[in-house]
């Protein structure tokens, strides 16, 4: 197993290089001159602009810029963003907020998705199942910004059960509503996946064996059906953690969360290559690591999957 983990870590290297190169190239190709944009409405001071270009290596060709960027990563000196703050400090500020948001969303979608999916699967074709299926379809069908504004207005503004916007501290309490909005789409998928998986496993031979052994229905479900049914669900949840981290832009916009999505959005608009690439690099690493975690969980849940044979 340890050689497997080592192999997976080595695989991170090409993924890391490829992802950073691709993102760096995309930012490089953005139209417009970021330094000119920096001056806004004021007339451009050529001397200052030239100095800034040198500081951000914008006078160099693309390859040189990319290599210099790689060097900055490995020397742990990410440089500064256009407002002059160290990028490392920016990352340290936004990532904890988004991580909190994403983990809360993940917990929400996992707990409720699995519980609802399990009940629906066990009562296939009954009223609860039909209701939940239709409701999940509606959730999947409505775009997240519509859902976000809807919940923000009803629960946050009209009912006042939760704060409609997030304070700069972004506490757990502040993030409950945004986390639900962020996790709703995946919640519907988790629910449907669990339901299908449970239904499939209910007719499995070993479930009949378990019943024939004299186990109670509860124990058959808890011990024999649930664990087998969770295998595909876990895979989805792991991959989803990365998606939640990177894909919170809309939700963070609606609730004004000072997180990764917000900062990334601003960096893209102002063409701050190093900031964009730094954020994306961390996201790529999170993606890879959460996938690795999923594979390990998979092996733990399903002994048939042997990695180091």
């Amino acid at each position: 197993m340890s050689t497997y983990i080592l192999k997976r870590f080595l695989q991170l290297i090409p993924v890391f290089l490829g992802a950073t190169l691709l993102v760096y190239f995309l930012v490089f190709s953005l139209p417009g001159d970021p330094i000119v944009a920096l001056f806004g409405d004021k007339p451009v001071n050529e001397a200052v602009a030239a100095k800034l270009r040198i500081q951000y290596h914008l006078d160099q060709p693309f390859w040189m810029q990319y290599l210099l960027y790689l060097k900055s990563i490995f020397t742990f000196d990410l440089g500064q963003d256009f407002s002059g703050r160290p990028i490392a400090a920016v990352l340290g500020e936004v990532f904890p907020v988004t991580a909190r948001l994403a983990v809360m969303a993940l917990v929400f979608e996992a707990v409720f998705g699995i519980i609802f999916g399990l009940i629906a699967g066990l009562r296939k074709g009954k009223f609860f199942d039909a209701t939940v299926l239709v409701a999940s379809l509606i959730v999947i069908g409505i775009p997240i910004f519509v859902l976000g504004f809807l919940l923000q207005f009803t629960i946050g503004v009209q009912l006042g059960w939760a704060k409609p916007t997030v304070s700069s501290a972004a506490t757990v309490q502040d993030l409950i509503l945004p986390a639900i909005v962020l996790g709703l789409g995946s919640f519907a998928y988790v629910l449907r996946l669990t339901r299908t998986s449970v239904i499939e496993n209910m007719s499995a031979d070993y479930v009949r064996t378990a019943t024939a052994k004299g186990l109670s229905r509860f124990r058959v479900v808890r011990v024999h059906i649930l664990r087998n049914s969770l295998i595909p669900v876990i895979t989805f949840l792991g991959a989803d953690l990365g998606a939640l981290m990177g894909g919170a832009i809309v939700t963070e916009g609606i609730f004004n969360v000072p997180g990764v999505g917000n900062r990334l959005y601003r960096a893209v608009l102002s063409g701050e290559g190093p900031t964009v690439v730094s954020i994306v690099t961390v996201l790529v690493l999170i993606y890879c690591l959460s996938n690795l975690l999923v594979d390990l969980l998979y092996a733990w849940l399903d002994p048939r999957i042997r990695y180091d044979s």
Binding site: T209, A212, K213, G214
Partner: peptide, 22 residues
């Protein structure tokens, strides 16, 4: 349930799938 597995036991056809793989 008290009878199943205790007084009456079943051997199923498919040894491949009749036991829980996990």
């Amino acid at each position: 349930r008290a009878v199943r597995g205790k007084d009456v036991a079943v051997i199923f056809q498919e040894p491949m799938t009749a036991m829980n793989p996990v």
